[in-house]
Design a protein around this nucleic acid. Sequence first.
DNA 1: TTTAGTTGAATAAAG
DNA 2: TTCAACTAAA
Length: 727
Amino acid sequence: MDVSYLLDSLNDAQREAVSSPVEHRLVLAGAGSGKTRVLVHRIAWLMRVEGASPFGVLAVTFTNKAAAEMRVRLDSLLGIPISGMWVGTFHGIAHRLLRTHWTDANLPKTFQILDSEDQFRIVKRVHKALELDDTRWPPRQSQWYINGKKDEGLRPQYLDDNGDFQERKLIEIYQAYEASCQKSGVVDFAELLLRAHELLRDSPTLLAHYQNRFRHILVDEFQDTNTLQYAWLRLLVGKEGKLFAVGDDDQSIYGWRGAKIENIQRLNEDFSNVGVIRLEQNYRSTSNILSAANAIIEKNENRMGKKLWTADGQGEPILLYRALNELDEAQFVAERIQKLSESEGYSRNDFALLYRSNAQSRVLEEALIRAGLPYRIYGGLRFFERAEIKDAMAYLRLLKNRDDDTSFERVVNTPTRGIGQRTLDIIRTIAREQVTSMWRAAQFVVAENELTARAGNAVKVFLSLIDQMDEGTDSLLLHERVEQTIQQSGLIDHYKKEKGEKGQTRVENLGELVTAARYFKPSDDAEETEMDLLDAFLAHAALEAGESQSEPGDDCVQLMTLHSAKGLEFPVVFMCGLEEGLFPHKRSSMEPRQLEEERRLCYVGVTRARKQLILCHTEHRRLYGEDHYPQLSRFVREIPDELLEEVRQNYGAVRPSSMNSAFNSPIKKPSSQIGGLNLGQSVSHAKFGSGVVINFEGDGNHARVQVNFDTHGCKWLVLAYAKLETL
DNA sequence: TTTAGTTGAATAAAG
DNA sequence: TTCAACTAAA
């Protein structure tokens, strides 16, 4: 059989990866080195050359987008739609296992999936039940704790408080939260993974079955796996399976989310004969951009090691613009976009504005609006996360699972039907006492006449509304059922009444939901696990929240955080706010590990650019109402001067003789004195009297000192104005 | 139930 | 500074 088409279009390293013997493999794929291509070709190779059955292949990704792309590319490479192969996200696959083996997993057949918002609500409820003061015990923190422990594969009963009071409380909360979820038959995202892991671990038969089935396990973005995902993979690979992991340690930017970059190194300890292949040829960027990227990432220690190169030319120099403040920065960006569009013929889609934190987007947006440039922001609320959609979904979930307390609480009084806080408190208490769901408690309360006539009636109306919506709608088509639900529940009318454009959009969104239901096609696994169409739709909504607003098809400038830029590429990339404190973020700059992650984030940003990279920073930035006079980011200073060209507004381009001499004081040796003042120096000020210099920042006209005044406390003063006298 | 006023948090985010 | 979430009052 001629399989040359599987290798022809590949370079040597890619070819080696695709055609390597069926053993464990780790492919270190640099940015823009064609990793998806390798992954897809490897699967095709396994099938066409190694005789693997599609049933024997499991391919795991982190995002739905990546999974979808892989499926499409596989189909087109193989010329036929792949069936029987498991291609999906970690969560999607875990979900599939749990749906198939719900009894073994100790779940109700129609268990529902919680998103982070649902989870947060439950945590808050648990806090209330435990009578915790939310100021002392922020629910967010508990949620963080619970997810963190689950990602580590830890159940509360195995946790040790080590005599720590705080820890003990958190364990208690975790335990109560779990009990609540189990009672309601709901599962959060981390729980999907944890249960799936336990399911296999605790059932030798099931484990043997899946180990036997999946002889080839391929993982994308391996550097993003957390402890639990790694354990799950290890379990599933077993003795016979072969792991093909693709990743890039230099692009590991989700440590704060539980990702363990160490998993890459661990491969060698836990698996035998892990061949490592490096993909270092980059097909995306100019060599100037790659040199900058290499220079930055080289400053990290503990790397697997990798150096990107390209067969293409040097390209444009990297531009560096030093703005007066964030407004100036934004204006510069907008002007540059217009200028480059005209001179180089770029379309708006070709530009991406990247920033470290979301707070930076506003000023940029305003400048774009002023310049009449349409833009699109990545991230933000997605379709299935909108309140009105979640309301509708909550009704649907109640139809499937009356014990789903989260959904119950969400819609019991939406639209308002006279079931107030008072009534709910009673129901909640009963539910807790009888260790049952809100739904059952409500039934009980109605039956026992424990409420005032009015409240009792209102509850009765709600209960029968749900039952009634459930009855006789089984035969309806999915979208008819959805339509019925939003009608009968009164949601549509409720939102129609809402004044202004908001209500209008909400009604439109609900209509959109009906359309989504009409065209909803369950995935293979939904079909195979014999899920009812509505169940599949509910799961789909939870696992795939959909795209965020505004059509990607429009010709728009793209705004996003550096994190969400990962995996994307653009002809022209602006990186804004390259300032110490902002990027690297001050909360990450203390610890070397975190600083390295920031540096990787910078590396990710730089390698998004194909032709032109433009770096911006300000000498003055107002953030949260506070003034900052930040230094240029150390990451920029790690780029060799000869790759950079400084942009001087109105003066044209000037090549700096040295970045350090021009206007940046090096942070490696922060000057301990400024404007003739030393730390600890006693000074006096005309208005504030005498004090001691305790800190300073900035230089030139913006140099500021912090003085602790004897009578007026600590103040930051601009040296140029303050006229301090040394004492 | 709705509305106005108050408080508090502000790094990044897929499923 | 800004915005969302919460609280108190009408």
